[in-house]
Every structure is written in C-alpha cells, then in structure tokens.
Design a protein around this nucleic acid. Structure first.
Length: 123
DNA sequence: CGTGTGACTCAGT
DNA sequence: GACTGAGCCACAC
C-alpha cells in the first residue's frame, strides 16, 4: 500500500476510527449513569465533535450500544430516533430521575471517566 | 476535494 | 421556556 496515499473512502480501511472510539465509550457507560454527547466525544478524542457523535448515535440502532445513556448537555434528553419517550423510559428504568425533558439528578448520574478539560470557547 | 447534513452546544433575545 | 444565530465536527455523496 502506498504510505502516502490518503484514501479515506471504500471498504477495508479504518474509516470510522472516531466512530469506533465513540461506540466503545458509550459501551463503557454503566447502567444508572449518563454521559453527554460532548463527554463521549471528549473520551473519543474530539471534545468538539459532539455533533459528529450525534450522527454516529443515529446509526447506533445497528450496533449494540446503550445509546439511550447518551444525553445532551444541560441534562436535556436530546433526541432518540423517533421515540424520545422510549429514551426517557429507559433512563427512568435505570434509576435516573427525568422531568419533562430534563434529568433532575443529571450532575448526580453524569458519568465521566476523568476528562474535564473541555477547551471551552471564548465567551 | 467540495458540499450538505444533523440524536450538538453556547450565548443572546 | 422557546427560538435564533454562530461555531465545530465526522461522515455520506
């Protein structure tokens, strides 16, 4: 293979390395805890790729990933492929208190490996 | 290699 | 609480 050849499309390549890390991170989330898209992205190596994580989650239905444990920032539920109510039910089933569209004990059940260095943008 | 897309996030109104 | 604008990112086409 040509080492200088940066082909990034087609079968048989590591396309989706980031995606693999994201899926792995989500799988590491224990029951009863939740993580935000930004947190998952940070664990995957891209603290700014929250948006990309969302896209990956959209395909989680084809993976064995507890995507329902991935929520939006601020404790909001975020989305869930056509069944947001299901996501809420799953979270409540794990002991997470959900209010309307928000997690009450969000900061309580928020799961983070150790990363907290979210280079936040200038305000 | 350029463009469009979206289960994101933050700040302001 | 809801809506808008701007920023950031990986992926499909």
């Amino acid at each position: 293979m040509s080492p200088g050849h940066t082909a990034r499309r087609g079968p048989g390549r590591q396309a989706g390395a980031f995606r693999a890390r994201v899926l792995a991170a989500v799988r590491r989330i224990p029951a009863g805890r939740v993580a935000t898209y930004g947190d998952v992205a940070a664990v995957a190596g891209q603290p700014r790729a929250a948006r990309a994580v969302g896209n990956i989650m959209r395909d989680c239905r084809t993976h064995d990933v507890p995507c329902h444990r991935v929520v939006a920032a601020g404790g909001r539920l975020g989305g869930f492929g056509g069944q947001p109510g299901l996501k809420r039910a799953l979270l409540e089933a794990e002991g997470i208190l959900v209010r309307s569209s928000r997690i009450r004990n969000f900061e309580d059940c928020r799961w983070t490996p150790r990363l907290r260095t979210r280079t936040r943008r200038a305000t």
